[in-house]
């Protein structure tokens, strides 16, 4: 009882919030909240197997799959608030409200009768009882569903497959291409400079320094630069005094420790 009345508002709020947030990642996380609450509700309703399956399969696998695709497609992409189709939002809310009210009213009038409860059905454990029914009464559906899963997996592979239009390029081909690009456009044939050369930290957020003392823009991930978390290497480089103090302190503590 308490569980239900605690979780129900949370679920509803989370679901509503899922509608209003702008970033897709936030929507996914709110959906996770809803799913986990649902799992708890299943547990409350004497369905421990499904409680576990909901968390493992639904939240753990399916939702994570969603998150992967969100990352791949564009985690930055956010829906603009402005609605492009005239009247869509208004009518969607109105009709949605109408639908909801009718559904709730209708459902409320349904007389379910006395709740029989699953004490008798779960006699012998929920999982064995489910297994009993699954492999006798519903075995055909079970087999069909397994075929469906295989088909889905194959389908995903087919859809995600990228056709190769030319022969696979070997390492020699790639090297030759780099030389040609250098000859044509002056693009640097070597690898990108690693970060943190003459840096205090061997960290990805510190840019490498060019011979003239300026930061090399290619040594820092574009994302970090966009986020603005890049440390200013020249500042670090000029703070020599602090650097030498640090080194000495480190050496002293090391000796003291021996």
């Amino acid at each position: 009882m308490i569980g239900f009345w605690l979780l129900a508002p949370v679920m509803v709020l989370a679901a509503l919030a899922m509608l209003f947030v702008r970033k897709a990642v936030h929507s996914a996380l709110l959906l996770a909240v809803v799913m986990i609450s649902l799992a708890v509700l299943y547990a409350i309703q004497d369905a421990p197997f499904l409680f576990a399956v909901q968390i493992i399969v639904y939240t753990g696998a399916i939702l994570m799959l969603f998150l992967f695709v969100v990352m791949l497609v564009g985690v930055d992409a956010s829906d603009s608030v402005v609605e492009t189709i005239r009247g869509q939002r208004l009518f969607a809310i109105l009709i949605g409200l109408l639908f909801g009210v009718i559904l709730v009213l209708g459902v409320a009038q349904v007389s379910v009768g006395t709740v029989t409860g699953l004490a008798a059905a779960n006699d012998g454990g929920n999982v064995p009882e489910i297994a009993k029914i699954l492999f006798t009464k519903y075995v055909f559906a079970f087999e069909t569903t397994s075929a469906l899963l295989i088909t889905a997996a194959v389908g995903a592979m087919v859809l995600a497959h990228r056709e190769r239009f030319g022969p696979k390029q070997t390492q020699a081909d790639l090297a030759a291409q780099r030389m040609r690009d250098y000859a044509a456009t002056g693009k640097h044939p070597g690898p990108l400079p690693p970060p943190g050369v003459f840096a205090r930290h061997n960290a990805v957020d510190t840019p490498a320094l060019l011979p003239d003392g300026s930061a090399a823009p290619e040594s820092i991930s574009r994302v970090l630069a966009a986020r603005g978390t890049v440390k200013n290497a020249p500042e670090l480089a000029t703070d020599v005094a602090r650097l030498t103090d640090d080194v000495e302190d480190a050496g002293d503590s090391e000796e003291a420790g021996r």
Binding site: Q88, F99, I102
Partner: peptide, 26 residues
């Protein structure tokens, strides 16, 4: 208008009408 969301709206409206009809009958 070619937009899937408009069509989905129509679907929902239809579903609401069906529910209404079911309710009215009872």
């Amino acid at each position: 208008n070619g937009f899937v969301r408009s069509y989905a709206l129509t679907l929902l409206a239809g579903a609401a009408l069906v529910l209404l009809a079911l309710l009215v009958v009872t």
